[in-house]
Measured scan of single mutants.
Amino acid sequence: MKTQEELTEIVRDHFSDMGEAATLYVQVYESSLESLVGGVIFEDGRHYTFVYENEDLVYE
């Protein structure tokens, strides 16, 4: 099982292909040891929320 830090790095790496991230945040109260819930805000103003669970990243 991966730590939240490892899950955060996986998510950060995925979003790095989409541009320069200004902020990546984790909603600790919705996350667990198995999943990471949060969002990313890019330098150009785009904002996505995400759920990373079971090696699957879903974002909108």
Rank of each mutant, 00 (worst) to 15 (best):
E55Q: 11
E34T: 09
S16L: 11
N54W: 08
S35G: 06
A21R: 10
T49I: 10
T8S: 07
H47F: 08
L36K: 00
I41T: 05
E60K: 11
Y52V: 04
F50P: 00
R12K: 08
G19M: 07
E20S: 12
D13L: 15
D17R: 15
V28F: 13
R46C: 09
K2G: 03
M1Y: 11
I10F: 07
L36N: 01
V37A: 07
F15N: 01
D56W: 14
M1W: 11
V58L: 09
E5D: 08
M18C: 14
E5V: 07
V28A: 11
S32R: 07
V26L: 05
N54C: 15
S16N: 09
T23R: 09
T8F: 11
H14A: 11
N54A: 07
K2W: 08
F42L: 05
S32A: 11
F42N: 00
Q4N: 05
T8V: 14
L24K: 01
L36C: 08
H47R: 06
S35I: 15
H14V: 09
V37M: 08
E20R: 12
G38N: 02
T49L: 11
F42K: 00
G38F: 12
E34P: 11
L57P: 03
G45F: 09
L24C: 12
K2M: 08
E43Y: 09
V37D: 00
G45S: 03
Q27K: 11
E60D: 06
E43D: 08
R46A: 03
M1H: 11
D44G: 04
D17S: 15
M18I: 08
D17M: 14
G45V: 06
L24T: 01
E43V: 13
E9V: 09
Y52N: 00
L7R: 03
E6C: 14
T3H: 04
H47Q: 05
F42R: 00
E30G: 06
M18R: 06
A22D: 05
Y25Q: 03
G45I: 06
G19Q: 04
D13M: 15
Q27F: 14
N54D: 05
F42D: 01
G39K: 08
A22V: 14
Y48K: 00
E30Q: 09
V51P: 00
E6W: 10
I10K: 06
L7A: 03
E5F: 10
H14Q: 05
G45L: 05
E6G: 04
E34L: 09
Q27S: 13
T3A: 04
V37H: 07
V40H: 00
A22H: 11
